[in-house]
Simulated scan of single mutants.
Amino acid sequence: MVNSESFYDVMRRQGISRRSFLKYCGLTASALALGPQFVGQIVHAMETKPRTPVLWLHGLECTCCSESFIRSAHPLAKDVVLSMLSLDYDDTLMVSAGHQAEAILEETIRKYKGRYILAVEGNPPLNEDGMFCIIGGKPFVEQLRYAAKDCLAVIA
């Protein structure tokens, strides 16, 4: 289901102390070449803003990007999926399938209109009206256009 936890909520759940959290925010400001006056803004954002939902769609591809991701060691895929991202839809990694999975996709698009990131692995076939890659009874290119219409950013 759609997650609205903040990064700070996740860090607290993992046993990160307040002191370590503040150090992390200071290091983040430094890594972004921001002055110390921005640390408070980073703290506030990480405490109050929900993690950005990510929809990961698959077109014509060999799934090697997903395979590389789930076999990575630094960071571990479980840490990325459970702590860093709010990966709301990825038909390769999610437990749900069929109508249930499509309902999660619809809910995320509707609930987070303009605030979700769309990750796309593979390409949409365009010949024959996209009939070489069908997902949920529709050509992938239709799903891609629909999901991309209201996303915050596309990573392909």
Rank of each mutant, 00 (worst) to 15 (best):
Ala101Ile: 04
Cys133Val: 00
Leu152His: 13
Asp150Asn: 15
Leu32Tyr: 09
Glu107Arg: 14
Thr108Arg: 12
Glu5Gly: 04
Val39His: 07
Asp129Thr: 02
Val10Trp: 04
Val54Ser: 08
Val141Pro: 01
Gly137Trp: 02
Glu121Asn: 14
Pro50Gln: 12
Gly98Leu: 03
Gln41Phe: 13
Met46Trp: 05
Asp91Pro: 01
Ile134Leu: 02
Gly114Val: 02
Val80Asn: 04
Glu121Leu: 11
Met131Gln: 14
Lys23Glu: 09
Gly137Phe: 04
Ser20Leu: 13
Gly122Asn: 09
Ser20Pro: 01
Asn123Tyr: 15
Asp88Trp: 00
Ile70Phe: 12
Ile16Ala: 13
Val10Tyr: 03
Val39Gln: 15
Leu126His: 09
Pro75Asn: 12
Leu55His: 07
Val54Lys: 11
Ala45Cys: 10
Glu128Thr: 13
Tyr24Thr: 04
Arg12Ala: 13
Leu118Pro: 07
Asn123Arg: 10
Arg18Gln: 14
Ala101Phe: 07
Gly122Thr: 08
Val81Asn: 01
Val10Leu: 02
Asp90Asn: 15
His58Trp: 05
Leu55Gln: 00
Tyr89Trp: 04
Ile42His: 12
Ala97Val: 11
Cys65Pro: 00
Ile155Ala: 09
Ser20Ile: 03
Leu85Asp: 09
Cys65Asp: 10
Asp88Pro: 04
Gln14Met: 06
Ala77Pro: 09
Phe21Met: 03
Phe7Gly: 02
Leu144Met: 06
Cys133Glu: 06
Asp129Arg: 13
Trp56Asp: 03
Ala147Lys: 00
Ile155Cys: 11
Leu87Gln: 08
Arg145Thr: 05
Pro36His: 11
Gly15Asp: 11
Ala33Met: 09
Ala147Cys: 15
Asp91Ala: 00
Leu55Glu: 01
His74Glu: 12
Met11Ala: 15
Ile70His: 10
Ile16Trp: 02
Arg18Val: 13
Glu67Cys: 07
Thr28Phe: 14
Pro139Ser: 13
Gly114Trp: 05
Val154Tyr: 03
Gln100Arg: 11
Met46Thr: 14
Glu102Val: 00
Lys78His: 14
Ala153Tyr: 02
Leu105Cys: 07
Leu118Ile: 04
Ile135Arg: 12
Thr63Leu: 04
Val154Ser: 10
Arg12Asp: 06
Ala77Gly: 04
Ile117Gly: 01
Val43Glu: 14
Pro125Glu: 13
Glu67Gln: 08
Leu105Tyr: 07
Gly59Pro: 02
Cys151Gln: 07
Leu87Arg: 08
Phe69Val: 10
Thr63Ala: 03
Glu106Thr: 08
Phe38His: 15
Ile109Arg: 15
Ser30Gly: 05
His99Thr: 08
Arg110Gln: 14
Phe140Thr: 08
Ala29His: 12
Ile134Asn: 01
Leu126Ile: 03
Asp129Pro: 00
Gly114Ala: 12
Cys25Asn: 03
Gly136Ser: 03
Glu61Ser: 14
Pro36Thr: 12
Tyr89Asp: 04
Val141Phe: 01
Cys62Ile: 00
Lys111Met: 10
Phe140Ser: 01
Ala119His: 09
Arg71Ser: 12
Thr63Cys: 00
Val10Cys: 03
Lys138Cys: 06
Ala77Phe: 06
Asp79Ile: 11
Thr108Pro: 09
Glu102Gly: 00
Leu34Ile: 05
Tyr89Val: 14
Cys62Lys: 07
